[in-house]
């Protein structure tokens, strides 16, 4: 059974159809990339999967490990192991990053019937993870995302992902606003999380990220539909040729 099974998904926002029939299966161990020009519904797909309000699903279904994902609340989906790394992570003033991380981790542990994490255990865990991601330990004492640079925000997202160990991770334009060094660090973090039990959906504009996180599948999303799928060579082709030929088809 696929980890994620999207069938004929149609989504509208305020009466306007954005996604016009998406079909996509993702298995554990796979990395899927979704590429496409601006405004074709890439972010809509990630928000719909994560359960954000304001999207109307007019047709289709999404199964997460065989369970109807669309019937779950956003927080249930998260606790069940779905993670979205945001393109624009939110600031939470006054809440230390470490506090936020611990709260999130404990929410997940409780859902799994585990005890809350012991303070020492958490400290050791967070020290190991921050070192791995080359995040200065001082950063986790600062309020979450408040005054963080673009690179720091994205690293903080990957740190959260690493800590919560999701089964399905969606990365929405994680490469936007990153310089090459930050991009490498973030990619390394993602790659270290690749495992047979986990699937990734990577949403991006550019092929650049995919040279560091090499996908198993690449899908082209244009006009609310997946118009072509292939392996990593498709990404390279797109980089060279752009999206023009798909957009012409769409227009016709």
């Amino acid at each position: 059974m696929p980890l994620i099974e999207i069938k004929n998904l149609h989504v509208s926002v305020q009466g306007k159809e954005i996604l016009k029939g998406i079909d996509l299966n993702m298995n554990g161990g796979e990395v899927h990339a979704i590429m496409g020009p601006n405004g074709t519904g890439k972010s809509t797909l990630s928000y719909v999967l994560a359960g954000r309000e304001g999207y109307e699903i007019t047709e289709g279904s999404v199964l997460f490990d065989g369970v109807d994902l669309l019937k779950m609340e956003a927080d249930e989906r998260a606790r069940a192991g779905l993670f979205l790394a945001f393109q624009y992570p939110m600031e939470i003033p006054g809440v230390a990053t470490a506090t936020f991380l611990k709260t999130a981790l404990n929410a997940k542990r409780r859902a799994q019937g585990q005890d809350e994490i012991d303070a020492m255990e958490f400290l050791n865990l967070i020290k190991a993870k921050t070192a791995e991601l080359e995040i200065p330990y001082e950063m986790i004492k600062r309020p979450l995302n408040v005054g963080f640079s673009g690179g720091e925000k994205k690293r903080a997202e990957v740190l959260q992902m690493s800590l919560l160990e999701p089964r399905v991770a969606i990365l929405d334009e994680t490469d936007s606003g990153l310089d090459i060094d930050a991009l490498k660090v973030v990619s390394r973090g993602v790659n270290s999380l690749r495992s047979e039990a986990r699937a990734f959906l990577i949403i991006t504009h550019y092929q650049r990220l995919l040279t560091y996180i090499v996908p198993d599948f690449v899908h082209v999303l244009v006009g609310g539909r997946i118009v072509e799928s292939g392996d990593k060579s498709l990404a390279e082709l797109l980089e060279a040729e752009g999206y023009a030929r798909f957009e012409e088809n769409e227009a016709a």
């Binding site: 939110m90 939470i92 929410a107």
Partner: peptide, 11 residues
């Protein structure tokens, strides 16, 4: 902000 927190598993 609410969605962000909920996406991390907080009710």
């Amino acid at each position: 902000q609410m969605f962000y927190c909920q996406q991390r598993g907080l009710n």
